[in-house]
Design a protein around this nucleic acid. Sequence first.
DNA 1: CATGAATGAGGTTTCATTCAT
DNA 2: AATGAATGAAACCTCATTCAT
Lengths: 205, 205, 205, 205
Amino acid sequence: MEGILLAAEQIVVREDFDALSTRAVAERAKVPVATLYQYFADRDAIIAALIDRHVSAMDVRLTEAVAALGTYSVRSLAQVVVDAYVAGYRAHPSYVVLWFQGRVSADIVARVRERTSRLAAQFHGFALAAGLLKPDTDVLVLEVAADAIDGVLDMAYRNDFEGDPRVLDAGIEMIVSYLERHATPPGIAGVSSSDLAARWEPPGE
Amino acid sequence: MEGILLAAEQIVVREDFDALSTRAVAERAKVPVATLYQYFADRDAIIAALIDRHVSAMDVRLTEAVAALGTYSVRSLAQVVVDAYVAGYRAHPSYVVLWFQGRVSADIVARVRERTSRLAAQFHGFALAAGLLKPDTDVLVLEVAADAIDGVLDMAYRNDFEGDPRVLDAGIEMIVSYLERHATPPGIAGVSSSDLAARWEPPGE
Amino acid sequence: MEGILLAAEQIVVREDFDALSTRAVAERAKVPVATLYQYFADRDAIIAALIDRHVSAMDVRLTEAVAALGTYSVRSLAQVVVDAYVAGYRAHPSYVVLWFQGRVSADIVARVRERTSRLAAQFHGFALAAGLLKPDTDVLVLEVAADAIDGVLDMAYRNDFEGDPRVLDAGIEMIVSYLERHATPPGIAGVSSSDLAARWEPPGE
Amino acid sequence: MEGILLAAEQIVVREDFDALSTRAVAERAKVPVATLYQYFADRDAIIAALIDRHVSAMDVRLTEAVAALGTYSVRSLAQVVVDAYVAGYRAHPSYVVLWFQGRVSADIVARVRERTSRLAAQFHGFALAAGLLKPDTDVLVLEVAADAIDGVLDMAYRNDFEGDPRVLDAGIEMIVSYLERHATPPGIAGVSSSDLAARWEPPGE
DNA sequence: CATGAATGAGGTTTCATTCAT
DNA sequence: AATGAATGAAACCTCATTCAT
């Protein structure tokens, strides 16, 4: 079962998403196709499991990276998020393909969207409590920003398997400029972690 | 041959991109499958032809929309580009699917990228001649912006078949803020078309 | 094990005979598939057990119904047999499917045939002893009649899940007309149960 | 395409109906499986084509046999119908399996039923015009009789691949006794073909 | 006695493409 | 130029059964 997911990941990274067929996974994992169906209801379930892994790993990375920040500002938050993704993609190149091409069934799309909303809500709560965003800032702003980060990463990785750094930098610029419209002066200038009014909480399941 | 492309477009818009099989196209066009191969080398060639149509139509729209502007600024340019795309998608819903899911073969990807570069170069030439961007602005800036617009549209249409207007607005905001970093004061404030130092030239084939 | 057979029955009645897979049975019985093989040699053995249940239940019904008759004639016997089956099918709709589609392996076919012969012999012995059929009537006549009743029921239930009453009535008419060719005058006119020369014996296992 | 149907027939007669898989047909016909789908929409279409052949051949046999009768009575009609089927089954043993196990999809069931109705109507029209059945005889009687003949044949062939002649004879007895209840005296005694008031017409499509 | 895990064999269907006519 | 016919390859999935634990 571990082996199956590993094989699926390897296929995705060495070939492309469309190559992720049950046959190919089975062959690479060196198990009969029927064995796949012991662990996964169908092909979509394999993709979903892969994406879930990705999401979990990314959430851990993100949480830790944010917690480790020395200075909190909308810029440093945007930067740290993008950096976490980039680090994650570097460690597991399959994530790039999975994340941007794997939203294949309605079920998976819904799960990814739900997760984006959860993240946005978490950042919204934190940024407001910490005084980085104006008190009347709508959650929507963070949802759009989250989507934008997703889009920037898509752009950066679409044509460049390593993630085009110019696109990444430009993307961060764009997002920061958008967020700063809703930021407080400290949210723009930055607040030292020791002066922070709120604690960053890891997301619960 | 016209009929074949028409059929292909209808399939893409009524079903989805994966439904664009040679058999489906032939059936809808009411020609035998073998006949497709008289006009197109293979399935990818059909997709490429479809995308070429899209690109041509969009380029015409874009060119005309830019030429018709009353006031030129980086903001009005960004806005008019996004508007042109939105209008194009509204007129031909198949474009949404084609554009964001049709980049299927390396050949097609290369063509799309080449076209983005061409557009970016054109805008770069115009904006510099018209004094909207600082003279030392690199073409890169406009390529990144062009990619960003593409990404914003992708975001806006990914989850919402009509194009999420909030995402579109936020996206324009982001792009404008990025471009204004490289803009001249008139590029920010806007220049009346009658005072324009340069002419906007339609792109040649 | 009771649960397994119950599950199998439910599947047959809610879906159809082809849905009676080991997996489906195990799932519905909430036991692992492997556990089925503790109680049954293979899939056919489950079907056979199901049919055996059906046969036993039907035999009990039949025996009691015949024993309860007030007047004995070939007509009343044919009628009571068909009625007993119809009542059985009404009580256990799974029997319809099982009986007419369940003869799947040579083993099961042989068992069903053996049972038909047994029933025919029993009726033959009784009818002769009771003076309802001419003394020289061959067992064959009753075997054919038994098969005919089976056929009539098949006909009646093949197209109509409730059993087409017109077909049932016509079928009884046909069988009676056939049996009356071999019947004695009392076998046609009917004999009161109190005047009966022979006792109806329940079939032994 | 001829070869495909031939192969399908051979499989049905040498193995059984469940062995009629696309793979098996293709193998025996020595064509790739994909070729089947050039001529048949799916597996059911193959079965349907087989049954259609059967029906057509049987209808021809039936029509000719009835037309060749010297004496017309309900008995001779019942006999000739059963004889025609028996001769058909002898010539093409696959028909037995097809006819009694091939009614697998709703579509096929409907077609078979429609054909039975057509035949019944045809016999009804003829027998009334020829004065063999009482003028007020309902079509229903002939539909039930047609079903009964079907049932008798099923019985006769179910356990005996050659068709048990005792069952066939007994079956004819049953059907005749049923039909004679609705027959006119000439319908019972028989009418010479030269004295017949009506002509037997082949069924049109 | 119970069962998680594994699996070989097979099921139906679709695909893009070629080629002789 | 047009096309009917053919097809190799692959897609996803289900099945009954075994066996080591």
